[in-house]
């Protein structure tokens, strides 16, 4: 992670009310320069709305937004040095790939446009597609053009709204790695929206977990996963057991639980889900259900109905703060 501490995008208490509903309910974020920052949250929690406010397509009803220390309230969209990558790509259908990428450069009256376009297309591995129309490209290729179009003008920050949401799993995995590579190569600030926790965990420097228009927690992927601020975050970021221990609610991830010879947690295997590299067991203990993650081969040898004893690595367990929901 970047050691620089200059701030890029800053949101303070941003509120957006639509039809009497608080879509954004006091959102505050400080995104550092060069950081890969993810907004993670369930559908409808306000991620797109926040991004649209930052880009200038929408206006907050309260709070302030800053870019590089400049208040954005009076800066119209076209003057904000930010570019957006849309989930729907939004490529210009009447322009070919080259002209789509060159669009921002031409408006800025930039020099050596062909070189810059070629460099951007090289970066997203699309060299040679210059003269094709967007309609003739696959979804993955369109997404690459959208990315090239957004980075070619070297904006201060890039806003990405579920850019991989419409792609199949394999393509997504590939593009995730590529996006991260491009981001660190350019050293550009990325604000990345997703509702996929694996994506957020694997790509980000830091993550903000949102729900119902509020930020629940901001932290590194490790912090958000292992030290969740509340039950919502714990449940949203991966599978989880939440158990009572010594009067506290404690978060135990399934991989901190293993099978053992004998212990005081004994139950019957409810079901076994085999994923190849790993297996997920549901074990009924009293009226609670424990999730247990095992190496794939180990899980395959366990059958539903079997009685098992569970050992918990309590060092990896995380007590939820008192009073958190």
């Amino acid at each position: 992670m970047s050691s620089r501490s200059r701030l890029s995008i800053v949101a303070k208490d941003v509120v957006r009310v639509i039809d009497g509903r608080r879509i954004l309910d006091g959102v505050s974020l400080e995104i550092r320069e060069g950081e890969f920052f993810s907004l993670l949250g369930p559908s409808g929690c306000g991620k797109t709305t926040l991004l649209r406010c930052i880009a200038g397509f929408d206006r907050p009803d309260g709070g302030t937004l800053e870019l590089d220390g400049v208040d954005l309230a009076r800066v119209p969209t076209h003057r904000r040095d930010l570019n957006m990558v849309f989930q729907s790509y939004a490529l210009f259908p009447h322009l070919d790939v080259f002209e789509n990428v060159a669009f921002g450069l031409r408006l800025a009256g930039s020099s050596s446009i062909p070189e810059k376009v070629r460099e951007a297309l090289d970066l997203v591995s699309l060299a040679g597609a210059e003269r094709r129309k967007p309609a003739t490209l696959s979804g993955g290729e369109q997404q690459r053009v959208a990315l090239a179009r957004a980075i070619v003008t070297r904006p201060k920050a890039l806003l990405l709204d579920e850019p991989l949401g419409a792609l199949d799993l394999k393509l997504r995995k590939g593009l995730q790695v590529e996006l991260r590579r491009i981001q660190s190569m350019l050293g550009m600030t990325f604000l990345y929206v997703t509702h996929d926790q694996d994506e957020a965990l694997s790509m980000s420097d830091r993550i903000a977990v949102m729900d119902g228009g509020k930020v629940r927690q901001i932290g590194t992927p490790d912090a958000v996963y292992r030290r969740p601020a509340d039950e919502f975050v714990a449940r949203f970021v991966g599978a989880v057991n939440i158990v009572d221990r010594e009067g506290r609610r404690v978060v135990v991830r399934p991989e901190s639980v293993r099978l053992t010879e004998s212990s005081d947690i004994v139950g019957a295997v409810d079901s076994v889900s085999y994923f190849g590299a790993r297996s997920l067991l549901r074990v009924a203990v009293g009226d609670a259900t424990w999730l247990v993650e095992l190496p794939g081969a180990v899980g395959r040898s366990v059958h539903a109905g079997a009685r098992v004893a569970l050992a918990v690595d309590w060092n990896e367990a995380w007590p939820l703060p008192e009073g958190a929901s």
Partner: peptide, 18 residues
């Protein structure tokens, strides 16, 4: 017309007339 098209253009620096 895709609704995001005009936004994308503004985002890339186009004035309303552009």
């Amino acid at each position: 017309l895709p609704p995001r098209l005009a936004e994308a253009a503004a985002d890339l620096g186009a004035t309303p007339a552009q």
